[in-house]
Design a protein around this nucleic acid. Structure first.
Lengths: 350, 350
DNA sequence: CTGTTAGCGCGTTCAG
DNA sequence: CTGAACGCGCTAACAG
């Protein structure tokens, strides 16, 4: 339970006690370091009582294996790289939580790097992971270079939330097109004919898919899309509020479909500022259900996704891939769920 | 920019290309490995043109230093341990974001472990960090054992959000007592005399401080505290809603002060379920301002804390400590800010 | 300024 | 079943 670390020990130049090594416990137990290694790692033959003695001495001396030495020798680390865009965003926080949980249960650790939606920072993160000799990386990709770099070095990559990698790799994504189609169809069926779409201007499959779903629903129901209603905002979104305002002023939509939780939040604020009543004056539907959407009045209709579970799946996929490098890439596509609430209703009469 | 990794290379048993080593680039450049090391690490004397040649060859071969080898040799890793309770909670997500940002800017990485409010998992995390030979750990502590274990092994610890460590260590906390005192005084000044307090039942300085602030405000204003109004809920909070319901039924408070964002969320739901109007029927004040508090109607009066900045400070403190192990522990206490909104008003007349 | 030597701690040969 | 020998990749010490 406790490890004593006897009082009169030498200190390393860095001021910390010299860590106990395999050699130490071997000496104490009267064996060689090799035997100690076999006993503690559980690999290889060791007589029952040698093992018992070694385990006891290790416990007693407070032995803690040196991960660096092990990684150097085995050329394989137990640390997995994870890069997400922004931990402060609840969506990425939940992905991270799911990943961490699954990795930890399998004896892996997670080195977490944020890229702030910058391709350069993502690449820097990838370089770091190469230095750490991680067996794999999970990322919500922002560019193509990072995963290409990793792949070139034989590091497994799992893409999460969106697919971007050029040599395709394992991925866990939502069926974004389906989610957007259902949300849009919901509004069309309520009678809306001018539905503004707020979507981030990227080449990510997430946004592309949501845009496609928006179009598909229109096509299915025989409604033409006015391209002026499609607002593609910058990923960093400085002028988002202004763009939303312009959409309202110029295009007079009767409903807005905001294709992620941040855009929904911005849209909600702009609508409130203008004292537009939901859903009487205008309807609002969001993507990625987060707690506030259920708490505001009226509550917000939204496409829910199993965020934490997506993180778990990505980690499982990576662990599988590490165990079996050969098999072809797998893409898991999870199902969204449309949660209808009070913010969506029939369009105003006039 | 790109690293070529010439096509006809041997593959390691794991199926990945054999990484380029210092020896490789030394051979190619016609120097010794030591010189290559000095050139690439920037430490030690190297002639200008030897350095130039080595840098070029390294670039050309796509050299990526092996962090494990370096850590093994230097007995000091560039990876820092971080343990938070739950990444899915926006509060911890923001702390993590601040930590990561600062560490990355200083060339460190963050290994993130969640403890799910379990002391055992926290200790397991600490053991992992010991194996990784991290120079320091930042944690939102749940028990005392983990940081004691780390300290015994000479690993620096910075506590974040609350202080718990027995041999005291660096810490970044909020002035919880002040925040709670201001919030409570605000309610008392509005005329409330029966203020229910929802606080987590821990021995953490955060909750203790908030409880103390609640009491201090009462004392200052000469109001006696009815201890029945103080509800200490379990950290995992299974029966939280029931406890809140009981408080309302039995004690008839005219206001509730919820001492963290999760408790505020629960209280808000319970109040709404009972169709109690804020602030006419009852007032609600939260601790830790999160986005939904500003979005609901009426918006929620809350004690705001600079969460991301607290993460940054903790990282800075740790980096400082790594550079200067000797100096006495530092505690940074940041100031909360009471944000008065619509959920707090005068108590009902009757 | 440079190369040689040695060792960080571990696991994996290979003989015995 | 065990121990001796070796090397993973890097850097610090030390001669030159």
């Amino acid at each position: 339970m406790i490890d004593p670390l006897p009082g009169d020990q030498e200190l390393t130049p860095l001021g910390r006690p010299r860590p106990v090594t395999l050699a130490d416990i071997a000496r104490e137990a009267g064996t060689s370091a090799s035997t100690a290694s076999r006993a503690l790692s559980g690999r290889g033959y060791v007589s029952a009582d040698a093992r018992a003695r070694l385990l006891e001495v290790a416990e007693q001396l407070g032995y803690v294996p040196n991960a660096s030495a092990r990684t150097l020798k085995q050329r394989q680390s137990s640390v997995v790289g994870v890069v997400v865009s922004d931990l402060g965003n609840q969506f990425y926080g939940r992905l991270g939580a799911g990943i961490e949980q699954t990795l930890r249960n399998s004896g892996y650790q997670m080195v977490l790097v944020a890229d702030n939606l910058s391709g350069a920072e993502e690449i820097a993160g990838a370089r770091t992971f190469l230095e750490l000799r991680v067996p794999g990386v999970i990322m919500t990709p922002v560019g193509r270079e990072a995963s290409a770099l990793l792949a070139r070095h034989g590091v497994h990559v799992v893409e999460l939330d969106r697919r971007l990698a050029d040599p395709p790799c394992d991925a866990v994504v939502l069926d974004n097109e389906l989610g957007a189609r259902e949300a849009t169809a919901h509004l069309l069926e309520l009678g809306h004919r001018r539905i503004g779409l707020l979507v981030v201007d990227t080449d990510w499959t997430s946004d592309i898919g949501r845009l496609r779903g928006y179009r598909a629903a229109h096509t299915e129901l025989g409604v033409a899309v006015d391209e002026q209603l499609v607002v593609r905002v910058a990923p960093t979104g400085q002028d988002t509020d202004a763009r939303i305002g312009a959409l309202l002023d110029v295009e007079a939509p009767t409903a807005i479909f905001a294709a992620n939780n941040l855009l929904a939040e911005r849209a909600w604020h702009v609508l409130r500022q203008r004292r537009l009543r939901l859903p009487d004056d205008i309807s609002l539907v969001g993507f990625d259900d987060v707690p506030w959407m259920e708490m505001v009045s009226p509550s917000i209709t939204a496409v829910a996704q199993p965020t934490t579970e997506m993180g778990r799946r990505a980690a499982r996929l990576l662990l599988r891939r590490i165990g079996d490098p050969g098999s072809p890439p797998v893409v898991e596509r999870l199902q969204p769920r449309l949660v209808v609430r009070g913010s969506s209703g029939a369009p105003p009469r006039n």
